[in-house]
Design a protein around this nucleic acid. Structure first.
Lengths: 168, 168
DNA sequence: GTTGAAACTCTCCTAAC
DNA sequence: GTTAGGAGAGTTTCAAC
């Protein structure tokens, strides 16, 4: 992807609601050009959507924790993500390498809710849990690398080949 | 916080760029009323900003990993977050309870970059690392609980007392 | 705290270069 | 890629309830 597109994405990650006028000024293009690039980024799925950054403390969810889970019976079908999807306290679910199967990020009001959610996780997905409580969050969800020129970066597919493109 | 404000926050978390017209229709208020509530939520810091949700694969950052760090010398001043802030590959930094001091979420292009970032983390903050590679992400950054009525939720401070309020 | 209307800005499309 | 124009929609403020 081009450098100017990365700059647009970085700007939209910092402020997803800024006007195309501001965006155009930041990346040094006209409003029309920026508008067209943003539409293309959205169509290509590079920009998947927009969301508000919220204060979880203000939402009465001051306690964050990571919950590593592994199944009681590893031979059973592994559908923990779908079995846990109904729990609104789970912010994110990562399938991970290592001893654990999944790593969950949960946000609750306090220890009492955490205990309840852990019980619900265990019973819903038939798993054991190992919980790491977050004490503070120095930073979270920072904008991705603005990066002008990739130097040491390896590629996952041969150069010149693009996924899903047949020439149109 | 009121139920209607929570509904607004939930809607903005799902789509941070929707118009006040749509927002008003969803929560059953007029456009002006919704607009005023959103402004108050922003001023109170409940809504801290807006950001684009991006595809890290499309940004050539397909490899996500959790990096748990702990210092070589625990007696040294603990300023790892600031010493690591210059690394754009670090998405989030959590101070955690347990054996480790911090848990980092990093996003890179591949194993080669991961190795480089790990070395930079170790040298920048004088820490050891234990890395957990993310294989896939079933879901991430889900909207927080919409919640109409808190039942089992405990409070972190006495009812009727609000932080920073002296009567204004 | 809510409503409705007016003024303004921005988005979005079109056309020509 | 750029500039220019313009219709429509959305944002923001204002006065009144």
């Amino acid at each position: 992807m081009e450098e100017i597109d990365r700059a647009i994405v970085a700007a939209l990650t910092t402020d997803g609601r800024q006007s195309y006028t501001d965006l155009a000024e930041k990346v040094g293009l006209s409003v029309s050009a920026v508008h067209q690039r943003v539409r293309r980024l959205e169509q290509r799925g590079v920009v998947k959507g927009y969301t508000a950054r919220v204060s979880f403390e203000a939402l009465d969810l001051p306690l964050t924790a990571f919950v590593a889970i592994r199944p009681f019976d590893p031979s059973q079908p592994d559908d923990a993500p779908v079995r846990l999807a109904h729990l609104p306290e789970i912010d994110s679910c990562y399938s991970v390498a290592g001893e654990d199967f999944y790593l969950l990020l949960v946000r609750v009001a306090g220890p009492v809710d955490l205990e309840r959610v852990l019980q619900e996780i265990r019973t819903s997905a038939n798993v054991t849990t190992r919980t790491t409580v977050v004490l503070s969050t120095p930073y979270e969800g920072r904008p991705p690398k603005i990066s002008g020129e990739p130097s040491t970066r390896q590629r996952s597919r041969p150069a010149g080949e693009t996924a899903g493109s047949t020439g149109g």
